[in-house]
């Protein structure tokens, strides 16, 4: 077996830069490609010592086929987005199953008392719905901006963390769904049903979603970053997302 000369730190950095030039923006994909390319370069140069590092690197790139690195990145993005979609979805659904369901029911009963009280005072409930919708939309805009600005700090120079972007995509997607819940009111004109059941359920679901966005989801991302990127030097990044 021919001797394989290990690549230097500078050469490894050059491969990282090369993957970035070829539109691999995520560190998660870069790190795996760099190891593969480095191994293949070493093997090719052991076979043919006259082969330059740059030529070997280009040859390896060509061996990835016509789609280059893009197919590799595409599948990885899909995998992590599905991971966060499922995690966020499962977490929200946990409020509709025992034991958290009891809390959700309690919250709905609480809101039902409020809506009935407002109705008993002969106040127009449509103002309450309008006010809730407006407050929720303002809160959505504020929250999305906050999440984006806090998570941006987690990416460093040329090292975009895929899990962070997938988290942002999954969580911000749930917000407009929450807003559209208020539309349910327009499907019926039965005021007793709206006051006693529909509005209390919608308000409690919006409250749960808001609570999760503030208290539940950020620690989930923080734990994921520590576990997934624990091998990286994250000392220059503020992991606190909450």
């Amino acid at each position: 077996m021919k001797h394989q000369e290990s690549l230097s730190k500078e050469q490894i950095q050059k491969i990282f830069d090369f993957t970035r030039q070829k539109y691999v923006k995520y560190y998660d994909v870069q790190i795996e490609l760099v190891d593969h390319i480095a191994e293949e370069i070493q093997a090719r140069r052991a076979q043919d010592p006259s082969l330059s590092f740059d030529d070997a690197m280009y040859q390896v790139y060509k061996s990835f086929g016509i789609f280059g690195f893009s197919k590799v990145q595409e599948e990885k993005v899909k995998q992590i987005e599905q991971y966060w979609g499922k995690r966020i979805g499962r977490h929200l659904l946990s409020y509709l199953t025992l034991p958290k369901l009891l809390m959700s029911i309690g919250l709905t009963i609480g809101f039902s008392l409020v809506t009935r009280f407002i109705h008993a005072l002969h106040w127009d409930l449509s103002y309450a719905v309008l006010g809730a919708a407006l407050a929720y939309i303002i809160w959505i805009i504020f929250t999305v901006r906050k999440i984006k600005s806090k998570t941006q700090k987690l990416h460093s120079n040329g090292q975009r963390l895929l899990s962070v972007d997938a988290f942002v995509a999954a969580t911000t997607m749930t917000l407009p769904i929450g807003a559209s819940l208020l539309n349910v009111v327009s499907f019926t004109s039965d005021s007793t049903l709206i006051i006693n059941i529909i509005l209390p359920i919608i308000f409690s679901l919006l409250t749960i979603l808001t609570y999760c966005m503030i208290y539940d989801f950020p620690p989930m991302l923080e734990a994921d970053i520590r576990q997934r990127y624990g091998h990286m030097d994250l000392s220059d990044r503020k992991i606190t997302v909450a």
Binding site: L7, I12, V72, E74, E75, K76, Q79, Q82
Partner: peptide
């Protein structure tokens, strides 16, 4: 490689594979 890595990532996503990162010198 263009077929292998997407397949590995797909299997990882399905929970069939798990991964671990280890340092091997400078990478």
């Amino acid at each position: 490689e263009g077929a292998l890595y997407p397949a590995l990532h797909r299997l990882e996503g399905k929970g069939i594979l798990t991964t671990e990162m280890r340092s091997i010198g400078n990478r």
